[in-house]
């Protein structure tokens, strides 16, 4: 693909870089000042978990500490409570079978919707007809009450964004104390995927008179199913 502006862009590139280079030519990068980092007090697993849960709750997420085998039953109960009749899910997920059997045993009519469609071809349905979704997560961050989503072909990036209610499974064993240590310890720089999402609550805005309202564009509700927290 070529654009009419390409020549212009190339010459802008050269002009900008030349101007910048002229100013910092000869800068000695070995002699840059040392950058301090703040040493945070070490916290126990319990403290980290407590912080993680309380921050998520203060950001209006619902946090349900559960056992892995309870996922299906808990999701069914939460859906029934909200009178939601279908759930978008990843049929290849570890918990998929458990979900399916709980849905089968449900007293109300509940449908599992596999994410097996291309979003481009189904945008209107996607936006209008899917009331809830469930995704996994890769890590969690205690300091900010954050869940890290690492979208894959099975769990696409918009799965946590478009349906109005989002269930996310978080594992307390993946909890890191803060974002900096997570990025460093898990060597993110060597493995950045198409998209990474840090989520810390349901979608919100305070753009009208500093009044907080939830469900601005994305999910109105974020329900965190927290494993291994006992």
């Amino acid at each position: 693909m070529s654009y009419k502006f390409e020549e212009q862009s190339k010459s802008a590139r050269n002009a900008i870089l030349a101007k910048l280079k002229a100013q910092v030519a000869g800068a000695d990068y070995e002699k840059l000042p040392e950058e301090p980092t703040f040493e945070y007090a070490k916290q126990s697993r319990e403290q980290l978990l407590e912080n993680f849960v309380s921050l998520l709750k203060s950001n209006h997420a619902e946090v349900l500490p559960i056992k892995e085998e309870e996922i299906g039953a808990v999701v069914v109960k939460q859906l029934q409570k909200r009178k939601i009749d279908s759930l978008l899910y990843n049929p290849n997920a570890q918990y998929a079978n458990a979900l399916a059997s709980s849905f089968g045993a449900s007293s109300t009519e509940l449908t599992l919707l596999p994410f097996d469609f291309n979003v481009n071809e189904n945008k209107l349905n996607y936006f209008n007809d899917i009331p809830a979704s469930i995704t996994s997560s890769r890590w969690a961050i205690a300091e900010t009450g954050t869940i890290v989503l690492w979208p894959t072909p099975d769990e696409p990036r918009t799965m946590s964004l478009v349906p109005p209610v989002h269930f996310v499974i978080a594992d307390a064993d993946t909890l890191h104390s803060n974002f900096a240590s997570l990025v460093e310890q898990q060597n993110w720089k060597a493995q950045m995927p198409t998209n990474v999402l840090l989520i810390s609550g349901p979608s919100k805005t305070a753009d009208i008179q500093q009044t907080l309202a939830f469900g601005a564009h994305g999910p109105k509700e974020l329900i965190v199913l927290l494993l291994n927290s006992q």
């Binding site: 291309n118 009450g145 072909p153 918009t158 995927p193 998209n195 919100k204």
Partner: peptide, 24 residues
């Protein structure tokens, strides 16, 4: 900015949609 420990979303985009992906 707003006194938040972090915003609700922090989105890191590194690539366009890959052939096996369903959105993006």
């Amino acid at each position: 900015a707003t006194g938040q420990a972090i915003t609700t979303y922090f989105n890191m985009i590194t690539k366009p949609r890959k052939s096996d992906e369903k959105d993006g």
